[in-house]
């Protein structure tokens, strides 16, 4: 052991400049590898099963301001597992699209609340100084109203996609299940089976989950919820007649 230490010391003393030069040359491709794995969506979609999710994300406002990692956090061991799956059994759309993705509310809140949560999760191209320009939903009338309320519906991530839903056919999705009372999450309206494609627009199906057929006339079915109620979700809180 002592002899090995001596040899190693002698080796390092002799070749230290070469070692440094090698590290300097290796640093650039190493950093570019990090940039590719962390900031380029192509790294993620080389394996993760998507239908048109990546395209709709790229075309949306989130595509210009975020990376996959901004919303999709996972533990370190998951990357090792994914590398194994990539080699042994790469998923194929649509048969391997099983579950409804879930984005926890604190990730949306880091940009979309004025009293923001932890912002260290943001890694995307959006510069931190531009976060002030992102719409703050706690200052908007119906958004603030909903954020103060609770629901007994299960989170949409518990919904297992049917064969039809995997192909994008959402006829009477059975996503109404009861559970313990909890705060309304962003993904309750801006997520779910119909929103799995990263578009994040709230759809009428999201309203119906809680509000059902609240209108006695066929108005809701004919015109939809958002035709009448869209504006109130964007109305500033201090201008609303509450």
């Amino acid at each position: 052991m002592k002899k090995f230490g001596k040899i190693l010391r002698a080796f390092l003393m002799l070749t230290f400049p070469s070692l440094l030069i090698g590290m300097g040359i290796g640093a650039y491709p190493g950093y570019k590898t990090y940039e590719y794995t962390w900031k380029d969506a192509n790294f993620c979609i080389s394996c993760h099963v998507h239908d048109y999710a990546t395209y709709s994300w790229e075309e949306s406002s989130h595509g210009q301001a975020t990376t996959c990692h901004d919303c999709h956090h996972q533990p370190l061991h998951q990357y090792i597992k994914e590398a194994y799956v990539y080699v042994t059994k790469r998923p194929v759309f649509p048969k391997d699209l099983h579950h409804t993705p879930n984005v926890p509310s604190d990730l949306c809140q880091s940009c979309h609340l004025s009293a923001h949560a932890d912002r260290s999760t943001i890694t995307g191209p959006l510069a931190k100084e531009n976060l002030a320009h992102v719409p703050k939903v706690d200052k908007l009338y119906l958004h603030a109203f909903h954020l103060e309320r609770k629901t007994k519906l299960t989170l949409l991530k518990s919904h297992q996609l049917s064969d039809e839903e995997r192909m994008g056919q959402f006829v009477n999705p059975k996503v109404i299940k009861q559970d313990e009372e909890r705060a309304i999450a962003c993904s309750d309206c801006h997520g779910g089976p119909t929103n799995r494609a990263h578009h994040f627009s709230a759809v009428d199906l999201s309203c119906v989950r809680c509000h059902g057929n609240i209108h006695r006339s066929p108005m809701g079915q004919e015109y939809g919820c958002r035709n009448c109620h869209f504006q109130e979700f964007l109305l500033p809180l201090d201008n609303s007649a509450r």
Binding site: F11, L14, T15, F16, S18, L19, L20, I21, G22, M23, G24, I25, G26, A27, Y28, P29, G30, Y31, T33, Y34, T37, W38
Partner: peptide, 22 residues
């Protein structure tokens, strides 16, 4: 040995600048 150190350094540099920020 210089060549070996260069190769080791290449890998070390790549690894450090990839893995540490990741």
């Amino acid at each position: 040995l210089h060549l070996l150190a260069l190769v080791i350094g290449l890998f070390l540099g790549w690894f450090l600048f990839f893995q540490v920020p990741f």
